[in-house]
Structures are given as structure tokens and as C-alpha cells.
Design a protein around this nucleic acid. Structure first.
Lengths: 163, 163
DNA sequence: CCCATTGTGTTAGTCACTAACAATTGTTAC
DNA sequence: GTAACAATTGTTAGTGACTAACACAATGGG
């Protein structure tokens, strides 16, 4: 991340990352399948899944997922600078931007697995919509340089879909 | 497309595509910025934008976008085999799957531009949600080998978000 | 102490993609 | 018809992500 922030993602080669980490390039690729994976790992899938399981089953699927995503924000580290830097990096790097859907798709599967009692297609649809909204919010938040209240923004955006 | 369908996307080199088209590799890259672009061009952005502009302004943004996407399906060619093949190719090729968000993001911008009188953030949020739903529907449709009624599926899925 | 497992390095290669320049074709002006 | 110009294409040589194959250490258990 340090190198990427200093020189940009495309301006940094995997060989340089490897050298800075004092390993060979080969070793980097053994731990991260692609260069993009060095940036694009997020740890919030299990958080969301966990929140999902603790929701009353009466609510519509869409509401449960939206609420879980919103609640999950509480797990973010208090200092959002790293998150902001990462989001900006993703936002301005085509190769990274492109992988976002792949990431959301993986999260979708986790959500579907966490709600075995609901119609899988409906869950998939609701999850993809909510995650798209969440992504849009992150982009918007990064565009305000992190000055906007992330939770407030997320609540407002999810309301567009859940109301 | 013929080569990609015969040998798979990763199993076909750009050099082979170039040879089949009787041009040099360089020429291919001058017309298509990446190998993925050979598959991932869709012509429905202007269709959707057009439908959007002919909607009554009274409706909520989300409904207008959803309805336009649904209406836009009418413009699809009557024989869906090519669309099905393309969707399948995208679905099973990680490199292509990854680019989907990039595509949807471009469509989002088109939608925002087509609705200059509405709150851009709300439009962005609604558009990203609807497009994510549409993508999920295409995936599902491809998984049924095109046997499902695409329009019906799309209507059902969009209803999850608009109801 | 031996052996199997695991992690790592090395090398050589493929392939997407770029930059620079040369060759070709098409188009317009005269 | 031809000269001047622009647009398109080809060629070459390169960079960099990523893979496959094999050799070499380190670790840990019997």
C-alpha cells in the first residue's frame, strides 16, 4: 500500500513490491493470485454475514440486507484514512475499479449462504442491489475526501432502495 | 466471438483473433483497447437513456430507471442465442466477469446525464442498484440456458427493489 | 536422525499491451 | 493524373503480469 500510494498502482511493479517485502516476485504471486489482490481484499464479508444471521426473519429480505450493511459500518476502524486511501486508489485505477464487481459477487454468495431459508434468487437480487448501492456510496464518500459522514450517506442511499 | 466460443476466451490469443480477421495484432489493439473489449461492448446504453427521457417526471427516480431497463429489453434481437453465448462467456471467464462493474459504471454515467433535473446522487444510487439487479438477472437467465423468460425474470427482480 | 511437508528461489517462457517509426492506403487540391 | 496530405495499418522491440518446472532450504514429527 505504501508503494502504491507513493507511485500509483500502475506505476509500481510487482517486482518492486516483492523487493520491498524482501521476497521474490514468485512468492508474491503465490500469496496473491493477481496484483490487484494486493489491494482488493476486504474483511467485511463475514461481518455482514454475521449481522444478517442475527436479524428477525419477519422483515423483507431487502431490508434485512440493507440494515446489516449499515450495521456493519460500525466495525470499520475508527481512523478511516487507510480506507479512504484504498478507496481512492481503487477509484482512480481502471484495473482495480474493474474488479469491484467480482468482489461484490463474492459477497453476494456469502449473503445467499447466510440466508438459507429465503428464496435464493430474491436474496441474490436484493444483495446485488444493496452492494451496488454500498459501492456507489463508497465512491461518493471518497470523492468528498472522507469529509461526509459515511454512515449517514449510506443510510440515505439505502433508503432510496428500501423505502 | 467464433474463436472465443470454440476455444474459450483465455484459450484464444489476440494474435489468433488478428490472424482470423486478417489484420495484425496491433490493429486489433487500435480498435479495441483491451482483449476484453472484443466481447464486452453493449449497445444498450443509448437505448436506456432514450427510454428514460420519455418517462413522466412525476415518478420516483428508481421507478423510472427500472421501467426504462425493462422497456429496453424490447430492443433486444429476437434471436437471443448470441446474447446467451456472450453472457455465458462472460459468466465463466473471470477476466470478463471482472469488467462488468466497469461497464455498469459507464451506463450509470449515461443515466445520470439523461436525468439532469434530479438529484445526481440519488440517480447514481438508483441506477447502480437497478443495473446490479439487471446483471444478476442476466446471470440467472444464462444459468437456465436461456429457457427462462428474460422479461418476466427482469420484471420480477426489479420488483424486489421497487416495491 | 530421517523423512515428508511446506515455503521459497531460479529460470525460462507466454501473452497482453505500448511506443516509435516505416509503409500503405485513401482523399483532396490543383 | 498527380502531388500533397491525412488516416490506417504493419513492424519491431520492448515492458510487465503471470505460469510451469525444478532445485533448494527450513520445519516438524516419528
Amino acid at each position: 500500500m505504501r508503494l502504491f500510494l507513493e507511485r500509483g498502482f500502475e506505476g509500481t511493479t510487482v517486482a518492486e513490491v516483492a523487493e520491498a517485502a524482501e521476497v521474490s516476485s514468485m512468492t508474491v504471486f503465490r500469496h496473491f493470485p493477481t496484483k490487484e489482490h494486493l489491494v482488493l481484499q476486504d474483511d467485511y464479508d463475514p461481518v455482514i454475514a454475521d449481522r444478517l444471521r442475527h436479524r428477525p426473519a419477519g422483515e423483507p429480505v431487502l431490508h434485512r440486507i440493507a440494515a446489516s450493511i449499515l450495521d456493519g459500518l460500525a466495525e470499520l476502524p475508527p481512523d478511516p484514512r487507510l480506507l479512504l486511501a484504498r478507496t481512492r486508489l481503487i477509484l482512480y485505477t481502471p484495473a482495480l475499479r474493474a474488479r469491484v464487481w467480482e468482489n461484490n459477487h463474492a459477497t453476494q454468495q456469502v449473503i445467499v449462504a447466510a440466508l438459507p431459508d429465503d428464496d435464493p434468487f430474491e436474496v441474490q437480487v436484493a444483495a446485488s442491489a444493496c452492494l451496488a448501492v454500498a459501492t456507489t456510496v463508497m465512491v461518493r464518500w471518497a470523492e468528498t475526501d472522507g469529509h461526509a459522514d459515511l454512515r449517514e450517506l449510506m443510510a440515505e442511499a439505502l433508503a432510496v432502495v428500501t423505502r
